[in-house]
């Protein structure tokens, strides 16, 4: 599982104020802690309160690159902010994210190609959030078709079936899980799959339990990557164990430690 740490996000008050005060140290500590806990890449989001997101994004990327060469997942709804991150990034990058809307794809696919970045595509469009699996598959197919048309390698595309909070869309959870498996067979080679995990427990009680249960089920459906809180140790232990049960790693008594040693 390719784990993307979600904690460098201006919506968290500590990070928000670190960005505002240009507190480099606080950002770097947050980056390294997530990596120590098992993050393979780091999400970078300057948050909704940022008044100068272009400058903040560039600053965050530069500050994080000073302490790690892990890939950075540039997270913004504004393509200009993403491009600013891409421009200064020395590390590998993942664009987070495009929707299935042609206007968005027309901007972000050329950017991804230009900067040799990977790309996350979320199966939503201007029409709104899909209501079932078929709508998700339609949107996924249109993103893939657009990638193929523009010569962007589908292996570098991560498709996100868009996770909704369990208390808002309980009836859709099974569709979301099944979409993970079915996205993979839309094309050959297939896209990778990804979830923004914490959405599933937004606004609900027992968040951590719901996160790790949903993640386990998603892993069983073949999920490749997740944006999550790697400092949630029970979540990471559960993830490692789920992959062990799927024979992705060889068992030994210290398998949790062995995974972290990798």
């Amino acid at each position: 599982m390719f784990v993307i740490g979600e904690l460098i996000n201006g919506m968290y008050s500590k990070i928000g104020s670190a960005i505002k005060e240009r507190n480099k140290k606080a950002i770097q500590i947050c980056a390294l802690e997530q990596i120590t806990c098992g993050a393979d890449a780091l999400d970078v989001n300057c948050g909704p309160a940022s008044k100068q997101p272009l400058i903040d994004m560039a600053w965050l990327v530069e500050v994080i690159q000073e302490v790690t060469d892990k890939p950075l997942c540039l997270d913004s709804s504004k393509p200009a902010v993403i491009e600013e991150g891409l421009r200064v990034a020395k590390n590998k990058t993942i664009i987070n994210s495009t929707t299935a809307d042609k206007e968005k794809l027309d901007i972000l696919l050329p950017l991804a190609k230009k900067y040799k970045s990977q790309l996350i595509g979320i199966t939503i469009s201007a029409k709104g959030i899909p209501q079932n699996k078929d709508q998700r598959l339609d949107l996924a197919a249109s993103i893939i078709a657009e990638c193929q048309e523009k010569g962007f390698p589908v292996e570098d595309l991560y498709l996100d079936p868009i996770v909704l909070p369990v208390n808002v869309a309980q009836a859709q959870m099974k569709d979301i899980l099944e979409s993970i498996a079915e996205f993979k067979i839309i094309s050959e080679p297939g896209p990778k799959t990804i979830l923004g995990l914490s959405n599933v427990s937004q606004g609900v009680f027992l968040r951590s339990l719901i996160n790790r249960t949903f993640l386990t089920m998603a892993v069983a459906y073949g999920l490749d990557s997740a944006i999550l809180d790697p400092k949630d140790k029970e979540l990471m232990d559960t993830l490692i164990t789920a992959e062990l049960i799927l024979n992705k790693n060889i068992y030994c008594d210290s398998y949790l430690e062995a995974y972290r040693k990798k």
Partner: peptide
């Protein structure tokens, strides 16, 4: 035993 081989390598490196 592959499980023990792996475990022993971890114990030694620890």
């Amino acid at each position: 035993d592959i499980n023990i081989a792996k475990q022993l390598n971890i114990l030694i490196s620890d």
